[in-house]
């Protein structure tokens, strides 16, 4: 049992090398940075939004929204179902697809030198018969009052209007757990035609017992010439 986190370091390294070799993805890269934890009996409604801006860039004015309902199916596994709406210029805003997501907590928090989980997502695009399957490792490590979270994801796309291909994505978040309501962080995203980083702010507000609202806001800036200049990311998650 003690050896198995080492195996994940190896898989994690392989995914990161895949990213460094080439990135091919067609999807959105800036999204939630997933923590590797699942709580039994958790239920949530989640809303995510992103918006991209750069006057002369092909991704200018791109906007996406996701609305999800999640619930734990076991002590260490949770499912979430999403509706996805996108606006890709010059097209109009439309309901573009839906997604099923499974998060699996592999290790108990604090048990090993880092905490590990896995993510599985299957997305179907409406009217185009296109699919995207995403899987990968979620890792978090505590450094005193700060936490480093890494997501190394492999994506396979196929369908009528897509070339079947493997892609890779990498997300990172370094967060200072200042106080529950306000936790500043920096985030990094690497994927197809996208390399960006920027500040983010997140927090949680408790209402009553297990009812709480989590929020996240990030402004991600391009760190190379191919990437759209600015991406705004916003998320709300109500747990009950």
């Amino acid at each position: 049992m003690r050896l198995f986190p080492s195996a994940f370091y190896i898989v994690f390294a392989a995914l990161m090398l895949l990213i460094s070799a080439h990135s091919l993805a067609d999807g959105r890269v800036v999204d939630k940075v997933y923590h590797p934890y699942v709580q039994a009996l958790e239920r949530s409604i989640e809303y995510r939004y992103f918006y991209q801006r750069q006057a002369d860039h092909p991704d200018n004015n791109t906007m996406g929204q996701k609305l999800g309902y999640g619930f734990s199916v076991a002590e260490r596994a949770a499912l979430e179902i999403y509706l996805i709406a996108d606006r890709v210029s010059p097209e109009d805003y439309k309901l573009s697809g839906y997604e099923l997501e499974l998060r699996w907590m592999l290790t108990e928090q604090g048990q090993y030198s880092a905490d590990w989980g896995m993510l599985f997502e299957l997305e179907r695009q409406n009217n185009q018969d296109n699919y995207e399957f995403t899987t990968g490792l979620l890792m978090e490590k505590e450094f005193g009052p700060t936490s480093l979270t890494l997501n190394a994801l492999a994506v396979y796309e196929w369908g009528k209007t897509l070339n079947s291909e493997w892609e890779a994505e990498f997300r990172a978040q370094y967060r200072y757990r200042w106080r529950p309501a306000i936790q500043p962080a920096i985030e990094l995203y690497v994927g197809e035609n996208y390399k960006g980083a920027g500040p983010s702010l997140m927090g949680v507000h408790k209402f009553d017992k297990q009812k709480q609202l989590k929020w996240e806001l990030a402004v991600i800036m391009a760190i190379d010439n191919d990437t759209v200049d600015r991406t705004l990311r916003f998320a709300l998650e109500y747990e009950f």
């Binding site: 003690r2 990161m16 090398l17 460094s20 030198s113």
Partner: peptide, 13 residues
């Protein structure tokens, strides 16, 4: 850099 990052995380149990 990925190797360096991973080595720094691979602390003994």
């Amino acid at each position: 850099w990925q190797h360096i990052a991973l080595m720094s995380l691979a602390l003994p149990v």
